[in-house]
Design a binder for these strands. Structure first.
Length: 332
DNA sequence: AGCCAGGCTCTCG
DNA sequence: CGAGAGCATGGC
Protein backbone atom coordinates (compact mmCIF):
# COMPACT_ATOMS: atom_id res chain seq x y z
CA UNK A 1 0.00 0.00 0.00
CA UNK A 2 2.58 2.53 1.14
CA UNK A 3 4.64 2.55 -2.04
CA UNK A 4 1.65 3.52 -4.11
CA UNK A 5 0.85 6.67 -2.23
CA UNK A 6 3.19 8.91 -4.13
CA UNK A 7 2.57 7.32 -7.48
CA UNK A 8 -0.93 8.52 -8.17
CA UNK A 9 -1.68 10.91 -5.38
CA UNK A 10 -1.48 14.14 -7.30
CA UNK A 11 -0.85 13.39 -10.91
CA UNK A 12 -3.59 12.17 -13.17
CA UNK A 13 -2.64 9.36 -15.48
CA UNK A 14 -4.05 9.25 -18.95
CA UNK A 15 -4.56 6.49 -21.46
CA UNK A 16 -5.56 6.24 -25.09
CA UNK A 17 -8.22 3.93 -26.40
CA UNK A 18 -8.85 3.33 -30.08
CA UNK A 19 -12.48 2.34 -30.62
CA UNK A 20 -13.56 0.40 -33.67
CA UNK A 21 -14.82 3.01 -36.16
CA UNK A 22 -17.20 4.56 -36.81
CA UNK A 23 -17.45 5.78 -33.24
CA UNK A 24 -18.93 8.90 -31.72
CA UNK A 25 -19.16 9.55 -28.01
CA UNK A 26 -21.36 12.54 -28.71
CA UNK A 27 -23.82 10.66 -30.91
CA UNK A 28 -23.97 7.91 -28.31
CA UNK A 29 -24.81 10.13 -25.37
CA UNK A 30 -26.55 13.27 -26.56
CA UNK A 31 -30.29 12.88 -26.52
CA UNK A 32 -29.81 9.43 -24.99
CA UNK A 33 -28.08 10.12 -21.70
CA UNK A 34 -26.39 7.39 -19.74
CA UNK A 35 -28.03 6.49 -16.44
CA UNK A 36 -26.68 8.31 -13.39
CA UNK A 37 -23.96 8.11 -12.00
CA UNK A 38 -22.43 8.09 -15.48
CA UNK A 39 -22.54 11.67 -16.67
CA UNK A 40 -22.00 13.14 -20.12
CA UNK A 41 -21.56 16.91 -20.18
CA UNK A 42 -21.69 17.39 -23.93
CA UNK A 43 -17.99 16.75 -24.38
CA UNK A 44 -16.69 14.43 -21.65
CA UNK A 45 -18.00 11.37 -19.96
CA UNK A 46 -17.42 11.26 -16.21
CA UNK A 47 -17.66 8.10 -14.20
CA UNK A 48 -16.51 6.64 -10.90
CA UNK A 49 -15.61 2.96 -11.08
CA UNK A 50 -15.63 0.71 -8.04
CA UNK A 51 -12.75 -1.75 -8.41
CA UNK A 52 -13.04 -5.19 -6.84
CA UNK A 53 -10.42 -4.05 -4.30
CA UNK A 54 -12.99 -1.50 -3.13
CA UNK A 55 -11.06 1.50 -4.44
CA UNK A 56 -13.14 4.16 -6.15
CA UNK A 57 -11.57 5.36 -9.38
CA UNK A 58 -12.85 8.54 -11.03
CA UNK A 59 -12.44 8.65 -14.81
CA UNK A 60 -12.88 11.33 -17.42
CA UNK A 61 -13.19 10.41 -21.09
CA UNK A 62 -13.01 12.63 -24.12
CA UNK A 63 -13.04 11.82 -27.81
CA UNK A 64 -10.31 13.59 -29.75
CA UNK A 65 -10.55 11.95 -33.17
CA UNK A 66 -13.44 12.11 -35.68
CA UNK A 67 -15.93 9.21 -35.86
CA UNK A 68 -14.08 7.54 -38.71
CA UNK A 69 -10.68 7.81 -37.01
CA UNK A 70 -11.68 7.82 -33.37
CA UNK A 71 -9.44 8.15 -30.37
CA UNK A 72 -10.53 8.32 -26.75
CA UNK A 73 -8.46 10.07 -24.12
CA UNK A 74 -9.11 8.51 -20.72
CA UNK A 75 -7.88 10.33 -17.66
CA UNK A 76 -7.61 8.48 -14.37
CA UNK A 77 -8.28 11.27 -11.91
CA UNK A 78 -6.57 11.41 -8.53
CA UNK A 79 -8.29 9.56 -5.73
CA UNK A 80 -7.63 8.53 -2.18
CA UNK A 81 -6.58 5.88 -1.72
CA UNK A 82 -4.78 6.07 -5.05
CA UNK A 83 -5.61 3.40 -7.57
CA UNK A 84 -3.14 0.58 -8.06
CA UNK A 85 -2.11 -0.60 -11.51
CA UNK A 86 -4.48 -3.51 -11.18
CA UNK A 87 -7.33 -1.19 -10.16
CA UNK A 88 -6.72 1.01 -13.16
CA UNK A 89 -6.58 -1.90 -15.53
CA UNK A 90 -9.85 -3.21 -14.17
CA UNK A 91 -11.47 0.22 -14.41
CA UNK A 92 -10.36 0.68 -18.00
CA UNK A 93 -11.67 -2.71 -18.97
CA UNK A 94 -15.06 -1.90 -17.43
CA UNK A 95 -15.08 1.47 -19.14
CA UNK A 96 -14.37 -0.01 -22.58
CA UNK A 97 -17.10 -2.57 -22.12
CA UNK A 98 -19.50 0.22 -21.18
CA UNK A 99 -18.48 2.45 -24.06
CA UNK A 100 -18.60 -0.44 -26.54
CA UNK A 101 -15.20 0.55 -27.93
CA UNK A 102 -14.48 -3.01 -29.04
CA UNK A 103 -17.88 -3.68 -30.59
CA UNK A 104 -17.98 -3.83 -34.35
CA UNK A 105 -21.34 -2.74 -35.73
CA UNK A 106 -20.43 -3.13 -39.40
CA UNK A 107 -22.63 -6.19 -39.88
CA UNK A 108 -25.55 -4.38 -38.22
CA UNK A 109 -25.02 -1.48 -40.61
CA UNK A 110 -24.88 -3.84 -43.56
CA UNK A 111 -28.20 -5.37 -42.57
CA UNK A 112 -29.74 -1.93 -42.17
CA UNK A 113 -28.43 -0.86 -45.55
CA UNK A 114 -30.04 -3.91 -47.11
CA UNK A 115 -33.43 -3.06 -45.62
CA UNK A 116 -35.62 -0.56 -47.51
CA UNK A 117 -37.12 0.91 -44.38
CA UNK A 118 -33.88 1.11 -42.41
CA UNK A 119 -31.47 2.40 -45.02
CA UNK A 120 -32.56 6.06 -44.62
CA UNK A 121 -31.91 5.88 -40.87
CA UNK A 122 -28.35 4.72 -41.19
CA UNK A 123 -26.67 8.11 -41.73
CA UNK A 124 -28.30 9.42 -38.56
CA UNK A 125 -27.16 6.62 -36.28
CA UNK A 126 -23.72 5.75 -37.61
CA UNK A 127 -21.21 5.88 -34.76
CA UNK A 128 -23.87 5.75 -32.08
CA UNK A 129 -23.35 2.75 -29.82
CA UNK A 130 -26.22 0.92 -28.07
CA UNK A 131 -27.21 2.12 -24.61
CA UNK A 132 -25.37 0.03 -22.03
CA UNK A 133 -25.35 -0.27 -18.27
CA UNK A 134 -21.98 0.18 -16.61
CA UNK A 135 -22.19 -3.15 -14.78
CA UNK A 136 -24.66 -6.04 -14.77
CA UNK A 137 -25.92 -5.13 -11.27
CA UNK A 138 -26.51 -1.59 -12.38
CA UNK A 139 -28.29 -2.87 -15.45
CA UNK A 140 -30.71 -4.98 -13.47
CA UNK A 141 -31.50 -2.19 -11.01
CA UNK A 142 -31.93 0.27 -13.87
CA UNK A 143 -34.33 -2.09 -15.59
CA UNK A 144 -36.46 -2.39 -12.46
CA UNK A 145 -36.53 1.34 -11.90
CA UNK A 146 -37.47 1.87 -15.57
CA UNK A 147 -40.55 -0.32 -15.28
CA UNK A 148 -43.77 1.40 -16.30
CA UNK A 149 -42.92 5.00 -15.49
CA UNK A 150 -41.71 7.47 -18.11
CA UNK A 151 -37.98 7.59 -18.80
CA UNK A 152 -37.89 11.11 -17.46
CA UNK A 153 -39.17 9.97 -14.09
CA UNK A 154 -37.02 6.86 -14.09
CA UNK A 155 -33.85 8.85 -14.69
CA UNK A 156 -34.68 11.28 -11.94
CA UNK A 157 -35.33 8.45 -9.50
CA UNK A 158 -32.04 6.80 -10.47
CA UNK A 159 -30.29 10.05 -9.74
CA UNK A 160 -31.88 10.34 -6.32
CA UNK A 161 -31.06 6.70 -5.60
CA UNK A 162 -27.39 7.18 -6.46
CA UNK A 163 -26.98 10.54 -4.76
CA UNK A 164 -28.71 9.21 -1.67
CA UNK A 165 -26.75 5.96 -1.32
CA UNK A 166 -23.55 6.26 -3.35
CA UNK A 167 -20.26 7.72 -2.17
CA UNK A 168 -19.59 11.28 -3.30
CA UNK A 169 -16.16 12.25 -4.59
CA UNK A 170 -15.01 15.78 -5.22
CA UNK A 171 -12.71 15.99 -8.20
CA UNK A 172 -11.88 18.80 -10.62
CA UNK A 173 -14.40 21.07 -8.93
CA UNK A 174 -17.12 18.56 -9.59
CA UNK A 175 -18.94 16.10 -7.41
CA UNK A 176 -19.03 12.62 -8.85
CA UNK A 177 -20.89 9.67 -7.34
CA UNK A 178 -20.15 5.99 -7.22
CA UNK A 179 -22.99 3.57 -7.81
CA UNK A 180 -24.26 2.44 -4.39
CA UNK A 181 -22.75 -0.76 -3.00
CA UNK A 182 -25.00 -3.70 -2.19
CA UNK A 183 -24.32 -2.99 1.48
CA UNK A 184 -25.49 0.58 1.18
CA UNK A 185 -28.65 -0.54 -0.59
CA UNK A 186 -29.45 -3.12 2.07
CA UNK A 187 -28.69 -0.67 4.87
CA UNK A 188 -31.16 1.78 3.36
CA UNK A 189 -33.85 -0.85 3.67
CA UNK A 190 -37.44 -0.58 2.56
CA UNK A 191 -38.02 2.84 4.11
CA UNK A 192 -34.76 4.30 2.89
CA UNK A 193 -35.47 3.23 -0.67
CA UNK A 194 -39.01 4.55 -0.57
CA UNK A 195 -37.75 7.94 0.56
CA UNK A 196 -35.77 8.09 -2.67
CA UNK A 197 -38.92 7.83 -4.74
CA UNK A 198 -39.16 4.10 -5.36
CA UNK A 199 -42.53 2.40 -5.02
CA UNK A 200 -43.07 -0.18 -2.28
CA UNK A 201 -42.84 -2.94 -4.86
CA UNK A 202 -39.71 -1.70 -6.56
CA UNK A 203 -38.01 -1.11 -3.21
CA UNK A 204 -38.64 -4.69 -2.19
CA UNK A 205 -37.64 -6.08 -5.60
CA UNK A 206 -34.32 -4.26 -5.36
CA UNK A 207 -33.74 -5.38 -1.78
CA UNK A 208 -34.50 -8.97 -2.72
CA UNK A 209 -32.04 -8.83 -5.58
CA UNK A 210 -29.35 -7.15 -3.46
CA UNK A 211 -29.68 -9.91 -0.87
CA UNK A 212 -29.60 -12.67 -3.43
CA UNK A 213 -26.46 -11.16 -4.94
CA UNK A 214 -24.79 -10.67 -1.58
CA UNK A 215 -25.51 -14.24 -0.54
CA UNK A 216 -24.25 -15.57 -3.84
CA UNK A 217 -27.59 -17.11 -4.78
CA UNK A 218 -27.71 -14.91 -7.83
CA UNK A 219 -24.77 -14.65 -10.22
CA UNK A 220 -25.50 -12.27 -13.06
CA UNK A 221 -22.21 -12.92 -14.87
CA UNK A 222 -23.04 -16.62 -14.94
CA UNK A 223 -26.16 -15.85 -16.96
CA UNK A 224 -23.87 -14.75 -19.80
CA UNK A 225 -23.04 -18.38 -20.43
CA UNK A 226 -26.64 -19.53 -20.73
CA UNK A 227 -28.70 -19.50 -23.91
CA UNK A 228 -30.97 -16.44 -23.91
CA UNK A 229 -34.14 -18.40 -23.30
CA UNK A 230 -32.76 -20.05 -20.20
CA UNK A 231 -31.30 -16.80 -18.90
CA UNK A 232 -34.72 -15.18 -19.24
CA UNK A 233 -36.19 -18.11 -17.33
CA UNK A 234 -33.72 -17.71 -14.47
CA UNK A 235 -34.29 -13.97 -14.33
CA UNK A 236 -38.07 -14.04 -14.38
CA UNK A 237 -37.96 -16.40 -11.42
CA UNK A 238 -36.84 -13.36 -9.41
CA UNK A 239 -39.61 -11.37 -7.83
CA UNK A 240 -40.06 -8.12 -9.71
CA UNK A 241 -38.49 -9.35 -12.93
CA UNK A 242 -40.86 -10.07 -15.81
CA UNK A 243 -40.03 -10.75 -19.40
CA UNK A 244 -39.52 -7.10 -20.31
CA UNK A 245 -37.10 -6.53 -17.42
CA UNK A 246 -35.18 -9.73 -18.16
CA UNK A 247 -34.80 -8.86 -21.83
CA UNK A 248 -33.83 -5.25 -21.22
CA UNK A 249 -31.26 -6.43 -18.70
CA UNK A 250 -29.80 -9.02 -21.07
CA UNK A 251 -29.47 -6.47 -23.87
CA UNK A 252 -28.16 -3.52 -21.85
CA UNK A 253 -26.60 -5.15 -18.78
CA UNK A 254 -24.98 -8.22 -20.29
CA UNK A 255 -24.80 -6.94 -23.86
CA UNK A 256 -26.59 -9.98 -25.19
CA UNK A 257 -27.48 -8.25 -28.39
CA UNK A 258 -29.49 -11.07 -29.87
CA UNK A 259 -32.12 -10.17 -27.26
CA UNK A 260 -34.58 -7.32 -27.81
CA UNK A 261 -37.20 -6.23 -25.26
CA UNK A 262 -39.88 -6.58 -27.91
CA UNK A 263 -42.81 -5.72 -25.64
CA UNK A 264 -41.26 -2.38 -24.83
CA UNK A 265 -43.47 0.59 -25.56
CA UNK A 266 -40.74 2.53 -27.32
CA UNK A 267 -39.60 -0.45 -29.37
CA UNK A 268 -43.16 -1.08 -30.48
CA UNK A 269 -43.65 2.56 -31.42
CA UNK A 270 -40.42 2.47 -33.40
CA UNK A 271 -41.35 -0.68 -35.33
CA UNK A 272 -44.80 0.71 -35.87
CA UNK A 273 -43.65 3.98 -37.38
CA UNK A 274 -40.69 2.69 -39.35
CA UNK A 275 -42.29 -0.43 -40.79
CA UNK A 276 -45.78 1.02 -40.93
CA UNK A 277 -47.22 -1.67 -38.68
CA UNK A 278 -50.34 -1.08 -36.64
CA UNK A 279 -49.84 -1.93 -32.99
CA UNK A 280 -47.29 -4.67 -33.64
CA UNK A 281 -47.29 -7.42 -31.04
CA UNK A 282 -44.13 -8.37 -29.20
CA UNK A 283 -44.17 -11.65 -31.09
CA UNK A 284 -44.33 -9.90 -34.45
CA UNK A 285 -41.32 -7.81 -33.46
CA UNK A 286 -39.42 -10.86 -32.21
CA UNK A 287 -40.03 -12.52 -35.54
CA UNK A 288 -38.55 -9.54 -37.37
CA UNK A 289 -35.58 -9.35 -35.00
CA UNK A 290 -34.74 -13.03 -35.05
CA UNK A 291 -33.21 -12.82 -38.52
CA UNK A 292 -30.75 -10.18 -37.30
CA UNK A 293 -29.01 -12.48 -34.84
CA UNK A 294 -26.58 -10.62 -32.60
CA UNK A 295 -27.18 -7.40 -34.47
CA UNK A 296 -30.80 -7.31 -33.32
CA UNK A 297 -30.40 -4.94 -30.39
CA UNK A 298 -28.06 -2.47 -32.12
CA UNK A 299 -30.55 -2.28 -35.00
CA UNK A 300 -33.64 -2.08 -32.79
CA UNK A 301 -31.93 0.53 -30.64
CA UNK A 302 -31.07 2.60 -33.70
CA UNK A 303 -34.72 2.45 -34.72
CA UNK A 304 -35.79 3.45 -31.23
CA UNK A 305 -33.59 6.52 -31.09
CA UNK A 306 -34.41 7.62 -34.59
CA UNK A 307 -38.16 7.20 -34.14
CA UNK A 308 -38.07 9.14 -30.89
CA UNK A 309 -36.02 11.91 -32.39
CA UNK A 310 -38.31 12.18 -35.38
CA UNK A 311 -41.36 12.26 -33.14
CA UNK A 312 -39.87 15.14 -31.20
CA UNK A 313 -39.03 16.93 -34.41
CA UNK A 314 -42.54 16.54 -35.78
CA UNK A 315 -44.02 17.81 -32.55
CA UNK A 316 -41.77 20.85 -32.69
CA UNK A 317 -42.58 21.59 -36.30
CA UNK A 318 -46.24 21.00 -35.62
CA UNK A 319 -46.36 23.99 -33.32
CA UNK A 320 -45.15 26.53 -35.81
CA UNK A 321 -44.82 25.64 -39.43
CA UNK A 322 -46.68 23.31 -41.74
CA UNK A 323 -45.65 19.70 -41.53
CA UNK A 324 -44.01 18.04 -44.47
CA UNK A 325 -44.93 14.43 -43.85
CA UNK A 326 -42.30 11.91 -44.72
CA UNK A 327 -43.02 8.22 -44.73
CA UNK A 328 -44.39 6.68 -41.55
CA UNK A 329 -47.61 4.77 -41.05
CA UNK A 330 -50.69 5.88 -42.93
CA UNK A 331 -52.21 7.23 -39.74
CA UNK A 332 -55.45 9.15 -39.95
C1' DA B 1 -57.46 17.70 -12.55
C1' DG B 2 -56.57 13.52 -14.34
C1' DC B 3 -54.35 10.47 -17.18
C1' DC B 4 -50.46 8.28 -18.94
C1' DA B 5 -45.76 6.89 -18.78
C1' DG B 6 -40.14 2.00 -21.96
C1' DG B 7 -44.35 -3.48 -16.03
C1' DC B 8 -45.06 -6.40 -12.36
C1' DT B 9 -47.39 -8.67 -8.71
C1' DC B 10 -51.35 -9.81 -6.22
C1' DT B 11 -56.15 -10.66 -5.93
C1' DC B 12 -60.43 -12.28 -7.38
C1' DG B 13 -63.91 -14.61 -10.20
C1' DC C 1 -56.66 -19.09 -16.30
C1' DG C 2 -57.86 -13.86 -17.59
C1' DA C 3 -59.01 -9.39 -16.10
C1' DG C 4 -58.31 -5.54 -13.05
C1' DA C 5 -56.38 -2.68 -9.33
C1' DG C 6 -52.47 -0.36 -7.44
C1' DC C 7 -48.13 1.73 -7.65
C1' DA C 8 -44.01 6.17 -7.69
C1' DT C 9 -43.19 10.87 -9.92
C1' DG C 10 -43.40 14.27 -13.65
C1' DG C 11 -45.35 16.17 -17.87
C1' DC C 12 -49.04 17.39 -20.60
Amino acid sequence: MAEKVEVGAKMARSYEVEPIPPYSLRATFTGTEPAFPSVFDGRCLWRVVRASSGTLIPLRVEQVGPPDDPLLLVEVLPSSPPASEADVEEALRALCRFLCTGDDLSSAYAKMAADQALRPILPYVRGMMPWTAFTPVEGLINAIVFQQISLRVAFSIMERFVKGLGEAIRVRGRILYAFPSLDAIMRAGQDGLRMLGLSRNKASYILGIAEALEEGQLDLEALSRLPAGRAIGELTALRGVGRWTAELFLATGLKRWEVVPADDLGVRRAFSSIYGLEEPSGEAIRALCSRWGRDAWPIAYSMLVWAERRERLLKLVGRGARILRVGGPAGT
